[in-house]
Design a protein around this nucleic acid. Structure first.
Length: 332
DNA sequence: CTCCAGGGATGAT
DNA sequence: ATCATCCATGGA
């Protein structure tokens, strides 16, 4: 057990872990504790490097462990993504530029597929803080524990483990009406006729269609899973925040702006790394809104930047990324 | 207290 | 095909 140092230029650990793409990392001291798959990890940023401690159960010797730990960190945090090129591919409008400057170093990470899917099934109509709470509750109750520096972290429970739990047990993790969907999807994934790993070979549209067949998964959740677990950097989830950003900045005074038109626009405008653009817009908007304790309009004015937008409309049915017919979903 | 949240399934137009 | 309504829960 010793700290390893990993070069991580053009990377911001805190922004990455606090941007609403992953929900279980805990601030400990100067860094974060969490699980990457079945490994317990402590990681902190030191300038252009990461200092990490990775505890894995299965490694032969110290040298092998070091290589494995480095590879794990590099892969999970997507340190191989060409971030400069990705940001350069963004559209050059003012809204996008502001988000790009604010989110420098934020990377889309590579999450385990089931963990990501299950977590986002739990995310519907929940604030980020609630999703965190749910993720932790599920882990504490059903997940295996791992130790790192006399601190406990918990794995996300397997689909098989959740499949054999009860809806009541899930509801006790503050899942509410989402419990039924999570349980149903866990049973499907555990039953082996839905192989999440195999789906990695599918084209975007087919993958999205497959995901949308799962209970509790619609266009928005499917796009999140595609972006955060399947490396589909084009996937553009549209939630209430993103919809506000789009309406206020790209369609000021547009009446009759339905989901399809919004989706078409995002695919055209944000292009091949739309998912990255989306995450930057999301994080920027959230961190600058009043109701989330972000910087206020007054502070923004002082800094010479544009005032943060203020959420106002509250009435829309969100949808994004074509999610083909779900006629087959209800039957099961 | 009220308001709202990284939505989806369902039934009515 | 689009639209309204309901679904639980807890932080702000």
């Amino acid at each position: 057990m010793q700290m390893i140092e990993i070069p991580a230029p053009d990377f911001d650990l805190a922004k990455t872990l606090d941007s609403g793409q992953v929900f279980h990392w805990e601030r400990i001291g100067d860094g974060f504790c969490g699980a990457i798959g079945d490994r317990a990890v402590y990681v902190e940023q030191c300038e252009d490097a990461l200092l990490a401690n990775v505890a894995s159960a299965s490694s032969r010797c110290l040298e092998e462990h070091g290589l494995d730990a480095r590879a794990t960190i590099r892969y999970y945090f997507s340190l191989d993504h060409p971030l400069a090129q990705i940001c350069a591919s963004f559209p050059q409008d003012a809204t996008m530029k502001a988000a790009r400057d604010f989110c420098r170093g934020l990377r889309i990470i590579r999450q385990p597929k089931w963990e990501c899917l299950a977590t986002f099934i739990c995310s519907s109509m929940k604030q980020v803080a609630h999703i965190r709470q749910i993720s932790h509750a599920l882990r504490r109750r059903f997940g295996e524990t791992r130790k790192i520096d006399n601190h406990s972290v918990y794995r996300f429970p397997s689909a098989a483990r959740l499949a054999k739990s009860s809806e009541r047990g899930l509801r006790e993790c503050a899942l509410g009406y989402r419990a039924k969907n999570l349980l149903a999807t866990a049973r499907l994934v555990a039953s082996r006729d839905t192989d999440l790993e195999k789906w990695a070979a599918l084209a975007d549209a087919d993958l999205r269609a497959k995901l949308c067949e799962l209970p509790g998964v619609g266009a928005k959740v499917a796009n999140c899973v595609m972006l955060f677990a399947y490396e589909r950097l084009r996937a553009f989830p549209i939630d209430v925040w993103i919809e506000r950003v789009l309406r206020e900045n790209y369609f000021p005074r547009a009446r009759k702006l339905n989901a399809k038109r919004l989706r078409t626009f995002t695919q055209e405008h944000f292009g091949e790394h739309g998912g990255y653009a989306q995450q930057y817009l999301f994080h920027h908007a959230r961190m600058n809104s009043r109701i989330n304790g972000g910087r206020r309009a007054v502070d923004a004015k002082k800094n010479g930047t544009r005032p943060a937008f203020v959420p106002q409309s509250r009435d829309f049915g969100a949808a994004s990324g074509a999610c083909p017919s779900k006629m087959t979903k209800a039957r099961a």
